[in-house]
């Protein structure tokens, strides 16, 4: 049995090294276009506990330079962060109103 394994391993070593499976691209769909309401953090009330980042299904909330930042390119606007925030410091604003204000 061991001999057979050794033989097989030698055969494998002779083969060209596989870099990865058939996939060559990383899924990169701009899912932010699905959103009809967007979460906006009120930085004055935010205590930076990171619970929103922990529960964000898309992993788009990150702590950078001492404040929580949402990546709106991928945020689908599910609103989990707005309900889970213990300080209720995240507003759920209609996307149409955001465009009017120009941000």
């Amino acid at each position: 049995m061991q001999k057979l394994v050794q033989q097989r391993l030698k055969k494998l070593e002779a083969m060209p090294k596989l870099i990865g499976p058939v996939s060559v691209k990383v899924s990169d769909v701009p899912t932010g276009t699905w959103r009809y309401r967007r979460p906006v953090i009120r930085h004055g009330d935010c205590v930076k506990c990171g619970i929103c980042a922990e529960y964000c299904p898309c992993g788009v909330i990150e702590k950078t330079e001492g404040k929580m930042v949402i990546d709106y390119t991928y945020c689908k606007g599910c609103g989990i962060c707005t309900t889970e925030c213990p300080k209720k410091a995240i507003d759920f604003v209609l996307e149409s109103e955001c465009n009017k204000e120009g941000d």
Binding site: S27, D28, V29, P30, P57, G59, Y74, C78
Partner: peptide, 14 residues
């Protein structure tokens, strides 16, 4: 990856 086409609010991705 971040740009995944799971539903809004899907817990499976989390």
């Amino acid at each position: 990856s971040k740009g995944m086409t799971t539903c809004q609010g899907c817990a499976m991705e989390l």
